[in-house]
């Protein structure tokens, strides 16, 4: 229980990044759930610094990031450039707040640094950039770049005989971009089974609900038609995420994609019930309420 206030202690074999996907399932799920809770709290703390931001997305994607960073990804928090690491690409630069929260949980960046988020001179800019932050692999911000770059990394790793995997987190909005689908063709054509795409389907983009902006459903069918091994899960169900990631890790012969349906503001009823907005406004006094609601949720 006390571990709730600090990043998970690196004890083998569950030290972050050490041994992906191992251990008793029930224990894994519980450990990930607690990590997701801390990621959400980190994100709320950062959101308060800016007084606004992509907090809804961060809360929605926290379970996915917790599963990736504390259960699936092979990396060394103290050595972010270790050549044998699995690459996690944040194609959606605006989700930086969520990634920093996860990198603090993973031990790649110090927890204390989170309060500099988005401030002048900080290593944690509002939009994630590799040149600023340890553990950030690509510079995002312009959407639809992640999968093409992932394709190149995966081709190069395979070419060099490096068994590392490439994971690319993209958003449902990024399914609008042609570049995403151009890279999807390339990954399938080249049989890149070292690529795993993760699509955060929060059903929202900048101008409103995805269904009204540009219809992308049926999403899973589209990936399959493009030659991908595709699964779709509730992205806020940690057990389902663990099972799906385990399955995809073992898949060979074609690239994999995990389509995750997530809920904006997940874990904080105040924000979960608020009208969905790409850039959610949170009043100054609401941050503490949000933190309290988050704690109550874990206790239940």
């Amino acid at each position: 229980m006390t571990s709730l206030t600090t990043p998970s202690t690196p004890t083998a074999p569950t030290a972050p990044g050490a041994a992906p996907g191992t251990g008793d399932r029930a224990e894994r799920v519980e450990r990930i759930r607690r990590a997701a809770h801390r990621i959400r709290r980190n994100a709320l703390d950062m959101g308060e610094v800016q007084g606004q931001g992509y907090i809804g997305q961060a809360l929605g994607v926290a379970d996915v990031l917790a599963t990736v960073y504390t259960d699936q990804l092979r990396f060394r928090p103290e050595d972010p450039h270790w050549p044998g690491r699995d690459r996690f690409l944040l194609s959606i630069g605006h989700y930086a707040i969520a990634l920093y929260a996860a990198l603090a949980e993973a031990g790649t960046i110090p927890l204390e640094e989170l309060e500099t988020y988005g401030s002048d001179g900080s290593r944690l800019p509002m939009s994630a950039m590799a040149s600023y932050t340890p553990g950030v692999e690509i510079s995002g911000g312009s959407l639809g770049h992640g999968l093409p770059v992932a394709t190149g990394m995966a081709l190069a790793l395979r070419h060099q005989g490096n068994g590392a995997r490439v994971l690319d987190l993209l958003s449902d909005g990024e399914l609008d971009e042609g570049s995403t689908w151009e890279a999807a063709l390339a990954c399938a054509h080249h049989g890149l089974d070292n690529v795993t795409a993760i699509v955060d389907v929060n059903a929202l983009q900048a101008d409103g609900p995805t269904a009204g902006v540009l219809r992308t459903e049926p999403v899973t069918d589209k990936w399959r038609a493009f030659g991908w091994h595709a699964l779709r899960v509730d992205g806020n169900d940690v057990g389902a995420l663990v099972d799906a990631f385990d399955e995809l890790r073992g898949h060979r012969g074609s690239p994999s994609v995990l389509v995750c349906d997530t809920r904006i503001g997940r874990g904080v009823p105040l924000l979960e019930s608020r009208e969905k907005a790409h850039f959610m406004r949170v009043e100054e006094h609401e941050w503490q309420i949000a933190r309290d609601q988050l704690e109550e949720g874990l206790a239940r």
């Binding site: 800016q50 007084g51 606004q52 640094e113 500099t116 988005g118 002048d120 001179g121 040149s131």
Partner: peptide
């Protein structure tokens, strides 16, 4: 390039700037 000292600075607040 950047510092790690956590001190309060002006924030980006990018979208409403």
């Amino acid at each position: 390039m950047t510092s790690t000292t956590p001190e309060k600075r002006l924030t980006t607040s990018a979208m409403i700037a």
